[in-house]
Design a protein around this nucleic acid. Structure first.
Length: 118
DNA sequence: CAATTGACGCCCA
DNA sequence: TTGGGCGCCAATT
């Protein structure tokens, strides 16, 4: 399991910091971790931990503002969209959200956050 | 150890 | 503006 990697823990902690009603992109999280090219890894990390951890994975979407669905989860449900709608995140008619309005703006560097422990 | 895959992202047509 | 293809980095098998 890759969850033991500090990089993964950083991802989880970062996602946990996303405020209710706001979202972040995979690339954004990757960039905040100092790995702007690792957007895929962020998605992969969330995919592995989603059902197990208390991470608000539903607040993470792709750069287009759409919900990235994997072949596995698409048949199950649209849980992510439902959870977001419960947080006042509105979807457009094209199944996309307005990132300019909902995208989370990380103010501080999570890597230096002293109150974060895991 | 090597090949394939993958909740992504950016460039080009 | 929308759609298709290539590229990046790690994890999995």
């Amino acid at each position: 399991m890759a969850q033991n990697n500090p990089l993964y823990e950083q991802i989880y902690d970062l996602v946990r910091q996303i405020p209710v009603g706001q979202v972040a992109t995979y690339g954004q999280i990757a960039a905040l971790l100092g790995r702007p090219r690792n957007a895929r890894q962020v998605g992969y990390a969330l995919f592995r931990v989603a059902p197990d951890a208390d991470v608000p994975w539903h607040r993470v979407v792709n750069a287009k503002g759409e919900i990235s669905q994997s072949p596995q989860r698409q048949g199950s449900d649209d849980l992510q969209r439902i959870l977001l709608e419960q947080e006042d995140v509105i979807f457009n008619t094209t199944d996309r959200i307005n990132l300019r309005q909902y995208q989370w703006e990380a103010k501080l560097m999570p890597l230096n956050a002293p109150h974060l422990q895991k």
